[in-house]
Write a protein that binds this DNA or RNA. Sequence first.
DNA 1: GTACATCTTTACCGTACGGTACATAAGTAA
DNA 2: TTACTTATGTACCGTACGGTAAAGATGTAC
Lengths: 201, 201
Amino acid sequence: MKKKSSPESGRPRSFNINVALDTALRLFREKGYEGTSLSDLTKAMGINRPSLYAAFGDKRALFENALQRYSDFYHVYLREALQQETGRAVAEHLLLNSARLLADPQNPRGCLFVQGALACGEGAESVRQELINHRGKVEKEIRRRLKRAKADGDLPPTASPADLAAFLASVMYGMSVRAASGKSRAELKRVAETALQAWPK
Amino acid sequence: MKKKSSPESGRPRSFNINVALDTALRLFREKGYEGTSLSDLTKAMGINRPSLYAAFGDKRALFENALQRYSDFYHVYLREALQQETGRAVAEHLLLNSARLLADPQNPRGCLFVQGALACGEGAESVRQELINHRGKVEKEIRRRLKRAKADGDLPPTASPADLAAFLASVMYGMSVRAASGKSRAELKRVAETALQAWPK
DNA sequence: GTACATCTTTACCGTACGGTACATAAGTAA
DNA sequence: TTACTTATGTACCGTACGGTAAAGATGTAC
C-alpha cells in the first residue's frame, strides 16, 4: 500500500503522513466521499495536490487508506465489546459505546461506514458497496458472538442471534443518523438504554 | 409554488409535471441530492434542461418539490400509525410499516429524509439541514402521541415518551440504512419485531 | 563538490457540473 | 391571418471537479 521501500535518499516529505490521513478521515466522515473535494483535502492538510497524489495515489486510494485507519479503530472498539462475558454485556457495551463514540465532541458525528457514501452518484458506487460490505462484516461478527452466547446458555433458547445482531446493528446505524443530526451523547445514550430493554431475559 | 396562472394560451407542456416530479423523487431517493445530476434528471424525465428549469426552477427548487411530495406520502403513513389506539399499537404500526415501505421493491430503498443528504459538501448543506428538520418533526409528532398515550394510561408511569420516540426514530433510520444495503422486507421486519420487545409493559 | 532520488510548486488539462440565451415550434385569441 | 403566449431544442456559459506535466527545491551517497 504505502512504500515500504523508503530509503533515506531524496527530499524528505514536508508533512506527517499519518496526520494528513487523520485529516482526510475527519473530512470524509463529516462530508462523505463525494462531498469532500480534493481542494478541501489539500487545504485542510496544508499541502498541494501533487504531494497528496505522490503520498496516497488518487482520491479513491486516499479514502481506502482513511477507511482502513477508521476500521482499525472501529475493530478495537468492536473487539472490546465482543469480549464481554455475556450476550447482554456485549449488547450493553456495543450500544453504550456507540452512543459515546458517535457523538464524540472531538470528532465528526456519525460512523464513516454510514456517512461515507449512503446514497451517491455513479462515481462513488464502488465506495458505497465497500461500505455496505464493512457494515455487513461488523454485523456478522456480532452475530457470531451471539451464536456463541446462545450456545453458552446466556441467551434463551428462543432468542435468535441473527435477529438480535441485525437489531443491534440497526440501532447503531440509527444512532449514527441521529448523531449526524447533532444529537448529544446523552440523547444517544437514552436511545441505547431503551434499546437494551428489548434484550431477551 | 407552481403557476396557478395557467391560461390555456401558449404552447402546451409536452410532459406530465407530476410524472416528472415522481421521477425526480425516485432519483433523489436513490442517489441523494448531490449524487443526482441535472443530466440524470433530464435524461430520466425525457426532457431537456430548459424545460425542467421552466417547470420547476433550479435544482434546489425541484428537490423542494420532490421533498414536499414525499413528505405528503410520508405523513399519510405517519398519521395512520399515530391514529392507532394504544402506544403499543402505534409503535407496531410505525415499525412494521417502515419495514414494508423502506424495502419496497417498487421504489428506491431507504427514506428520503435520510438518503437525501446525510453527509455532503457545502453546496448541499442547506438541504442537509432541511432534512434534519424533517426528521425532527417526525420524531416530535411521535413524541406528542406517546405523551398522550401516557396520559391515557396505556403507557406505564415510568415510561418516557421522549426516549421511546427517539428510540423508534432511531430504529426507523437504522432500518433505512439497512434497506439501502439491500436488505429485504423480511429482514427489516425481524428488526422491527425485535425492537418491539423493548416496548414497556 | 557531483550525482541521484524524491518531494514540492506552479500551472495546466479534460470533463462534468449547474444554469441560461436565443431562436423556433405549437398552442389560443382576435 | 395576425398577434400573442408559453414550451421546446440547440448550443453555449462560467465554475469546480479529479488529475497531471514539468521544473525547481531539498535531502542522501559518493
